[in-house]
Design a protein around this nucleic acid. Structure first.
Lengths: 340, 340
DNA sequence: CTGAAAGCGCTTACAG
DNA sequence: CTGAAAGCGCTTACAG
């Protein structure tokens, strides 16, 4: 079917101008809120807009103005609540600024990431907020940043492009210090997912903090990615020959899964085995005992990243920035003193 | 700064055509994969595209073609995992179809909803997937549907526009039947949030199912909206004069909150009090005892809704459709026989 | 403060 | 199978 059948033909600026008895340029000034137009003229035009149900065609406006006011947001995953919170923060500040956000999911595949980013560039986005897919090459992101404003979120693959994330390394320090202070000596690190900067920072942070306390930094256990699978993998920790008494989790998803899994094995979380989460996505609430967790404030990271993009849009040439949000340890019930 | 400073000037179709030694129209045919162009010519043009790093300007293409291949998705909230799952389903099928999705959050306010939808129309979206905000007037949605393809998701405010949701009513039947079969006579309904079609359907479904079993359908308890607040409100159920022995929750968020809250009050979920969730967003996994829940399959609803929008884009005039996904009761550990 | 003209980068008929 | 011309709906200088 022809488009005319679908949409009743939209009124254009010419229709508005004609009805108001002014020129098209004048009508254009009115819809852009220019101060150059006389009050009486403005009223005339606004009435015409109202009566015609005129809706501005930004597609046409952009073509001329070379600016779209839409930005692309590319995340590797939409199931982890962490990314949802990030999304909420991003959406909040961008919407307030009148920018529209195109959303895409790279599924942590560089190929898909490059596809969606290419498509977004075809759509003319002014900028990108991207959490690079695992194994994403620096050049893809750098090239992008060379053309449109770009900021990396949560993970970075290059220092030449803005980055906004959390200070995972010191978060790990906080986690290890807490458990060490409680008397734990054998602490496992339960990891999950692919390798990327945020992974490495957590991993290195764990290792160096453990070493500083003279503890064995090698009890690293790889876990699957869905909640039910994680729960069923709790025995991997229990059966580890080094018999850890506490586990630091790569993120809260892992912590929630293990918390349930330990209970299924009749192991009391907090007294018999301590579990410490990372990200603090739900204030530790869903489980009992409540989860002790290192807060990384994903929503706030989203807001900061969006603001950084706004800055970058205004100052394309300024040197690239690096921002790591401070973390806080929220102590609740899932960690406790080593019981002898 | 002028845009030229920001972006190195993009190559245009003319540049490509010139380099390939063909006309602009021919180059256009190549990028649109038309079969009309000779193989040898195609190769020439593709080489030119490659060497110039040409990126198609869809903004310009659309202006002529009167079709943007972008659709708007409007949800009332981004924190409830239910909407995230919906989002994932929508994104999955739309992306596969080569459509881009503009995302916006109405925060369940009609005013903000109308703003974002207006902005999206200015951006020229071909269609809308919208979960209407609480108290959204039918006319706003209907008017929209009169201009661009529109489908309502999860909630509807009019029968004149496509709708895709779940069969909440029969989900409630399943919930009540299960608890009644376990011997429960005094069943509470823990609700949350504003009133909308999905609310009414659950509410009515609860009421009529209870009545059919000759049970009191009036034990309805209103709860706050965040997890911590819900947990702290568990006493409202316990202290109710009609002393319910089981609670059906408006959604899983409420169920997770109450499950923790009951444990905080030293009430054993499943034996002393049964809790039944709705939506089954996380397969009941985060909590122990595992949550019994009515599955509404949000991701699949998202996929269906996206497919319906695709249909609607092709057949603007066909009669409006109504689809309610079947629900399933997943029995786990949080519900058990009435203990006497 | 307002208007006539050019142009943004494509696609769409229409010839050939 | 290819090319010259018109036009999509705006904004942008430039006059006045």
């Amino acid at each position: 079917l022809a488009p005319e059948d679908q949409k009743t033909k939209r009124a254009t600026l010419i229709d508005v101008a004609r009805l108001a008895g002014v020129s098209r340029a004048t009508a254009s000034l009115v819809i852009r809120n220019s101060p150059l137009v006389a009050k009486s003229t403005r009223v005339l035009v606004e009435e015409a807009i109202e009566s015609l149900g005129y809706i501005r065609n930004l597609t046409a406006a952009r073509l001329r103005a070379a600016q779209t006011r839409v930005v692309g947001l590319v995340v590797p995953n939409l199931t982890n609540p962490f990314f949802t919170k990030l999304l909420a923060g991003v959406e909040e500040v961008l919407e307030a600024e009148g920018l529209a956000v195109l959303l895409a999911n790279s599924h942590d595949s560089e190929g898909r990431q490059n596809n969606v980013m290419r498509r977004m560039r075809e759509h003319g986005v002014d900028g990108f907020l991207v959490c690079p897919a695992v194994d994403s090459s620096p050049s893809a992101i750098e090239m992008c940043g060379g053309h449109v404003a770009t900021v990396q979120v949560l993970r970075y693959v290059t220092r030449h492009i803005d980055y906004v994330g959390a200070d995972y390394r010191s978060g790990m320090e906080q986690a290890v210090s807490h458990l060490a202070a409680l008397g734990h000596q054998r602490i496992a690190f339960a990891v999950q997912g692919g390798q990327h900067s945020a992974y490495h920072e957590r991993f290195d942070g764990f290792g160096s903090a453990m070493s500083r306390f003279d503890l064995d930094p090698t009890i690293v256990v790889g876990l699957p990615s869905t909640l039910p699978e994680i729960s069923q993998s709790a025995h991997l920790i229990v059966e580890d020959a080094r018999s850890p008494t506490a586990t630091i989790c790569f993120n809260d998803l892992v912590a929630f899964g293990l918390s349930g899994g330990f209970q299924d094995l009749d192991i009391k979380v907090g007294s018999q085995h301590s579990i410490l989460g990372f990200d603090d996505v739900m204030q530790g609430e869903p489980v009992r005992p409540r989860l002790t967790s290192v807060a990384t404030y994903p929503t706030e990271i989203g807001r900061r990243a969006a603001k950084q993009l706004l800055l970058r849009l205004q100052e394309p040439k300024s040197p690239s920035s690096y921002f790591a949000m401070q973390t806080d340890l929220h102590i609740r019930q899932s960690t406790g003193p080593l019981s002898i």
